[in-house]
Amino acid sequence: MEEGEIGEARLPVYEYDPSLEFPRDSTPPKTTGSARVARFVARTRVGHGRIALVDEHDEVQFGRDALPQGTTTPRIRIKTLEVSKHHATVYWDAEGQHWAIVDMGSMHGTFILPAGSAAEGRGQRLSASRAASIPRKISHLDSIRFSTIEFVAHIHDDLPCAECSPQSLKDEIPLFPSAKPVADAPPTTSLRTHPYARDPKKALSALKREMLHSSQSTRPSAPAPATAYVDRSAMRRANFPASAADAPGVAPIRTTLMPPPPPPPPPIPQPAPDPVSQPPTPLASTNIGHKLLMKQGWQPGTSLGLDLNGRAEPLDGQELATTHRRGLGMTK
Rank of each mutant, 00 (worst) to 15 (best):
A206M: 07
R125F: 00
G7V: 03
M294L: 15
P248V: 03
H324M: 12
A94E: 10
T31R: 08
M235N: 07
G317P: 15
G4P: 04
K202M: 15
G317E: 10
V54W: 03
L315C: 11
L159I: 12
A100T: 10
P241M: 06
T189F: 09
S243R: 05
P266K: 05
A234R: 13
E3Q: 04
S106R: 02
T27C: 07
V102C: 06
C161Y: 04
L141S: 12
I76R: 01
K79Q: 15
D171C: 06
R43S: 14
P279F: 06
E163M: 06
R24V: 11
G70L: 00
L53N: 13
G96M: 04
A128M: 10
A66T: 12
A284M: 10
I51W: 01
P28Y: 00
R236N: 11
T322F: 08
G289W: 09
P264S: 05
R24T: 03
T322I: 07
D231F: 04
A52Y: 00
C164F: 03
H213Y: 11
L20T: 12
A222C: 00
A42F: 08
T148F: 11
E2C: 08
T80L: 15
L67H: 01
G116S: 03
T256G: 02
P280L: 15
E15T: 05
P248Q: 00
D103Q: 03
K291S: 12
P135F: 05
V41H: 03
H98L: 11
L81W: 08
Q97C: 03
L328E: 02
A183N: 08
T148M: 14
P271S: 06
T218N: 13
L257M: 13
S214K: 13
D158E: 09
W99V: 02
G289P: 02
T331M: 13
